[in-house]
Amino acid sequence: MNTANSVDSFTCPEFLAMERTIIDDFVDCTREACEEAEACVKELDNDGGAAYVHRLFRAMHSLKGNCQMVGLTPFVELLHRVEEIVARVRAEQDPYFRELGEFLLLAIDEVEDLLNHLIAHGSTSDVRRKKLYELCDTLQKSSSRGFQPQQFKDAIALLDGKVSSKETVSKAPRVMLELQDDMLMMRKFAQQIDNLSIYRKNRSEQAAQLTASLNEALGNPVDARQLQAASLMHDVGMSFIPHSIFNKEGGLSREELKIVQEHVVTGAQMLLRFGGWDEAARIVLDHHERYDGYGYPNGLTGKNIHPGARMLAIVDTFCSITNERSDRSYKRSLLSAISEINANIESQFDPQMVEMFNDVVRKLIAKQ
């Protein structure tokens, strides 16, 4: 455990130094394990059988394993103590009862809250972590004759006096009608389109980072915020494409292809509606144009294509190649991606920009 400035908090530098994509992946996996554990507790409260106890144990074990993989040692120690409670029920040493499940839900909530605070602020409460650890430890030591409901009631009361499951105590937040910052809203839209397919995980954010790096390498010919907005919003129009087409495996018909191509117009129009993002809208509109004039929607050639769109075309192709797709259940390497892009200079991509993108990817490979 690594202590922060305050003796009441701790941090985990090894974890926080990891790439954002790894941290995001960890958060997603952790959320899935927590949701699985909560679903199992709900079923067990409704007289679910032993299968849900086994699933609950696996969910807790996954939580612990995820933390171990990314160097969150303090959480590994804590989750091991929580897991031991489930292990006793799984081994039929003790019966399951509602109070035990309620305590587990509160423990999971506490772990999630501590993790979120660590990610958001760089440190989190060691007092709360130790409190939960000691409660689990006490339950183990004081239960030599078997777990008793009253012991868990007492533990729940000590855990900040919460006495009901999170479904009954959580109060729905009041919904406020207010305008968010444009860029925050664009990130939400980008996350939404990325969540529509398992093959698009963090794709928009990855595109935004790479276009920013390419723009910088070229001497910033495009306004950085306009380019960031375009990178986040370039595929948002795809969310209006029918799912039967969006998720279709194999080739598209001519009519289906026309429907897909409309996404650039939809995305550009959305940016114009925001106001103040005219350049970003033009980038989105042009990002499927080809250097040789065989792109869409306007068949523009060479320097007639917005420079931001020429950058985004390279990056979008790179992201597509290096991520899994419905027709290809594996990721191709960075080198194979850059080789394919280089093979299409002058026909599809701006040669000068591809040359600079090679440098960006070289630095990315060196970093990895």
Rank of each mutant, 00 (worst) to 15 (best):
G302R: 00
A313E: 00
D24S: 12
A212T: 05
L196P: 07
S244A: 14
K188H: 12
L78E: 03
L227Y: 01
T11W: 06
L16K: 10
Q93W: 10
K130V: 02
Q228W: 02
H121I: 05
H121W: 08
A39D: 13
S9R: 12
R362K: 08
N116K: 12
D47K: 15
F147M: 10
M353A: 09
I22F: 15
C34G: 03
K141I: 01
I259N: 04
L179K: 11
K171G: 00
L63V: 04
L232Q: 07
V264Y: 07
D137N: 14
R98K: 11
M233N: 08
H288I: 06
L227D: 00
I108P: 00
R145Q: 15
D113T: 05
I305T: 06
S333G: 13
P74R: 01
R310V: 08
F147A: 04
L115S: 00
A212C: 09
D109I: 06
L179S: 05
H288M: 08
R273N: 07
G48H: 06
F246Q: 08
I156S: 15
S244T: 09
L44Q: 03
A343R: 14
L56P: 11
V70K: 07
E84D: 10
R128H: 08
V315M: 03
M185C: 04
K188F: 10
L135M: 11
F274H: 15
L300V: 01
C67P: 02
H121M: 10
A4P: 09
S326N: 15
M233P: 01
M185P: 05
F246P: 01
S231H: 02
V89N: 03
E178V: 11
M1K: 05
L285V: 02
C29H: 11
G65T: 04
D154E: 15
N247G: 14
K331C: 14
M311A: 09
A157F: 13
G267K: 08
I119A: 03
A280C: 01
V260I: 13
Y294G: 14
H306E: 10
V284E: 13
F318S: 05
I314L: 10
R58K: 15
Q150F: 12
F57S: 06
S164M: 13
Q352V: 08
T211S: 11
H306A: 05
S9D: 11
D286I: 03
L232D: 03
H80F: 06
N342L: 00
